[in-house]
Design a protein around this nucleic acid. Structure first.
Lengths: 159, 159
DNA sequence: GTGATAAACTTGAGTGCGCAACCACTGTAG
DNA sequence: CTACAGTGGTTGCGCACTCAAGTTTATCAC
């Protein structure tokens, strides 16, 4: 603990790089996705999660947790996706409180068509810039962060 | 989707981790800073940049570039900081278009008091979780990203 | 049963920010 | 001196999101 401000400096530096680089990156990819397919990144991620989920449906709470959004954020997000016809609601017969978000056929098609360019965009940013090993170590390093934040919420991020 | 290589999967995976982990992290630190000192992360970073700048002042454009914000974002940001008395405006006598943001004494004190807990928070997240070497390699890896965005060939250079 | 507590979800108000459009000033060209 | 392109900066509008408060359904205590 009493050690060096160097560690602090390194941490701050890494953090600032992360913050700025990531902010610009997200904005960039988001703008691209938005202009090409009228989807935000979270729209896209939501569709992706649903597509991978069993039966193409998820509880809104689980979606919120996976997307790192509050329940109200998910409500508005799905609101837009419903209006666009990409998802629809379904209720649970064993629990009247929960509502499922269900991926529609239209939604799946939309995801497929958006995937091509979005993945290509990510590829362009990441794969061209890092080697395979670097990518893995980056993923590993960054993978440690969420645990810190949400606490013990390692509930079923299996997938 | 296409056949695809594992590389794409790896890129996507790294990206998703980055996205989610970082989003949660930013929200977390932001909330902390906000509740403890009534500053957003960008408020803090702006004060920090000004404190490091020569004469404690910067042109708004340069601030925008450093913070990865649009000019309008900087206007609102500084609007708040001015209202709080942490910065004030100054005009340039050699160029009537530019306005400087100048850190006030109050602002410098605010930054100092906020720094303690904020740096501690970052320390808690980063330095405890990574070794010195990992931190450096993380910083290096992430440092390559911004170049991609603002960079040479990609796109949307105009605007 | 009745009541208290909790979970899933929605709604209203407010915030941070980008985009597009705009004004103000500068420097160069005719 | 006028014209005009380029840059610095602000404003109107809209979007995505959070927080706080409310509604409905489930569950547990008695």
């Amino acid at each position: 603990m009493s050690t060096s401000t160097d560690d602090q400096t390194a941490a701050l530096d890494a953090w600032v790089r992360l913050l700025r680089g990531h902010a610009a990156l997200v904005r960039d990819l988001n703008a691209e996705l938005l202009h090409d397919h009228a989807l935000t990144i979270n729209d896209y991620e939501a569709l992706l999660l649903l597509a991978h989920a069993d039966g193409g449906q998820m509880r809104r709470t689980d979606l919120a947790q996976s997307l790192q959004l509050t329940p109200s954020g998910v409500t508005r997000l799905l609101d837009g996706l419903e209006r666009a016809g990409y998802v629809c609601k379904a209720s649970c017969d064993s629990d009247g409180r929960v509502t499922y978000a269900v991926l529609t056929e239209t939604g799946r098609e939309k995801l497929d068509s958006a995937s091509a360019s979005h993945v290509a965009g990510i590829e362009a940013l990441f794969a061209q810039r890092y080697t395979r090993e670097e990518l893995e170590s980056l993923a590993e390093l960054l993978g440690r962060l969420p645990d810190a934040v949400g606490g013990p919420s390692c509930r079923a991020p299996e997938r």
